[in-house]
Design a protein around this nucleic acid. Sequence first.
DNA 1: ACCTGAACACCGTTCAAGT
DNA 2: ACCTGAACACCGTTCAAGT
Lengths: 176, 176
Amino acid sequence: MTVDEICSNALRLMDEAGPEGLSMRGLAAELGVNPMSLYHHVPSKEALIGLVCSRVAERVPLPSDDGAPWQDQLAELALAYLRHAQAHPAVWAYIHSHPELIEDRRLPIRNTLDRVLRLAGVTGPELRRTSDVLYALVTGFVITAAQGHLPGGQDEIDRDFGTALRLIVSGVAGLS
Amino acid sequence: MTVDEICSNALRLMDEAGPEGLSMRGLAAELGVNPMSLYHHVPSKEALIGLVCSRVAERVPLPSDDGAPWQDQLAELALAYLRHAQAHPAVWAYIHSHPELIEDRRLPIRNTLDRVLRLAGVTGPELRRTSDVLYALVTGFVITAAQGHLPGGQDEIDRDFGTALRLIVSGVAGLS
DNA sequence: ACCTGAACACCGTTCAAGT
DNA sequence: ACCTGAACACCGTTCAAGT
């Protein structure tokens, strides 16, 4: 039994039933193992969830710089974020309600956001603040949408997302 | 023992330790009562948290229409939202990760938002969508800030909040 | 109506013992 | 090193019994 096996099963349980739906005993049962065996690979349930969250956050398919305008790259990045959160809503909700678990600003998605913002001409000391503000704003939409908190189907959500993005892009453009 | 007493004590526990920190047994102990007595006033822990959330959401001090420009009223509303979430971060985080608990669009804060948007000239079918998008965006910032997820002190958070609001206001103005 | 104690079916985790 | 069973200290909740 490896940490990978434990994490991938834990992820599935979190996707199905959220963090409260994940229990060490239930997870052990699925792995056909004594509940206490898990503690030889992982120090606690909280740490396990932290591991799962880190792994999920590493796996967002991020756009690389293809020379497209920053507006397009920002939209592509945000869409990747939305899609990934829709695939793992409980994990992303957990990440954002447990700031101590993961250093947000070190997330791969944040590095990409900073890259795109530099492309947009945001410089030096303003970069961090702009990045924080944008990430907080978009996260609100993403978490809300991922939890089915918005009315309408996927089409309507995507259109609303487009609306929000245009609003933000025009705001960022207005900064410089 | 009244439902009010139960809820106000439950709110204090949630403010201190979040929803997981609130236990029926611990709450009963604080009230000097048998754990099972609570179930004669409240059907379950989940329902109790729902009650607490509803009561908190009703108590946001909302600005009334004082004839000021809609931009100012929107800023005032958003600031009231931020301040209230900072006073009860766990409750607001819970509200927004449990869409089934409270019908968001019926929240008093949403009625006020709609009123301000009508003031801004947003009409008919676009009103609901714009309201949903704006609320989702601002909520992201508010939850993030309320959980201390942003760097810097209150001053810096307020400045970032102002930045986000100007961005959104200019976007809304661009819609019409 | 309201409160209670005992009990049930769960948790996460510690610890001593096994291989 | 890795796994196990028993045990501890908790949970939310049901139920029958009290007043």
